[in-house]
Amino acid sequence: MLNYTIRRLIFAIPTLLFISFIIFIILDMAPNDPTGNLPLTIPPEVRQKIRESLGLDAPMYIRYLLWCNQFFINEPLNMLHQWFGWCIGDCEGRLRVESWITRSPVVDSIVERMPQTLWVVGMSYVVSILVAVPIGVISAYKQYSWFDQAGTLVSMIGFAVPTFFTGLVLQIVFSTMIPSDHWAWLPSKYNTLHEVTDWQSFVYQMRQMAMPVTVLALYNMAQLSRFMRASMLDNLSQDYVRTARAKGLRERTVVLVHVLRNSLIPVVTVIALGVPTIFGGAIITEQIFGVNGLGALLIIGIQGADIPLVQTLTFIFAVLIVLFNLIADILYGLLDPRIRYE
């Protein structure tokens, strides 16, 4: 397994380099102008100067190599410096990947936005798993019962109704119709500066997370619970379940130990594969609730033709996707004894 992991990781390196190059080419070919969003009153000569100051007059491959140097060498060195205080080379004047919009290091922006992204998107993922698994199990076990039918309906709604709509409905109910001094009132905008220091601030954090987390979790849960249900149904009709019953096991043991554990194998890998999407943020939900996580950052970057920002973000997503694909494969191997990697 270790050999397999190492081999996969080594193969990932050229793949990722290739991906980074492709991303760069695509971004470069996109008909996007970083000065395009400036007010029309800024004359063309000034725009040209701005473009030059961004380094846009250099040929494509030079800009790509520059980015590679900044991202693969300078950023890790900077991290070592900031986290451990190790200084290799010129620690202060090092050229980092800088956003064209904010004129600040992209990696810092990403780190800055990590907390709210993880709190909201990550938590919604956890919540959706915690809700979806039991729902999927019960739905499958009681197939076609009213619970299952209701579950199907909720999933269908969660899946079909777009998040901007559920978000809006929740906002209208919990932020607008309920008066703001009522205990059930929820803030419609997420305060990214809020810090959890005591019980009260923790409660506020929970309240401001409630709506975005619910909206996202509903959507994720819909998919995941269907998946869990299907996997359970697959296993429930297997012969080994009959064997387990014939052994005289308790029904709970049969379902939770035999069926659930086997059914979880594909579900766990699907969950692992979905983790990178957390870091991709939830563009629409983040917008509605002003969470301003990584999804919103990506959108701002795309709208502003901020190539360094978009390039870095998409590349990090690519890394995460490759990584979690590997993790999913390894998990599968660990969970299912029938699969062995050499």
Binding site: Q238, D239, Y240, R242, T243, A244, A246, K247, G248, H258, R261, N262, I265, L335, D336, P337, R338
Partner: peptide, 18 residues
């Protein structure tokens, strides 16, 4: 259950793979 048992048709499918 202990008094009565069954041996199944498909030995592969009737054993829990995990």
């Amino acid at each position: 259950r202990p008094r009565m048992q069954m041996i199944f048709q498909d030995p592969q499918a009737s054993l829990n793979p995990r």
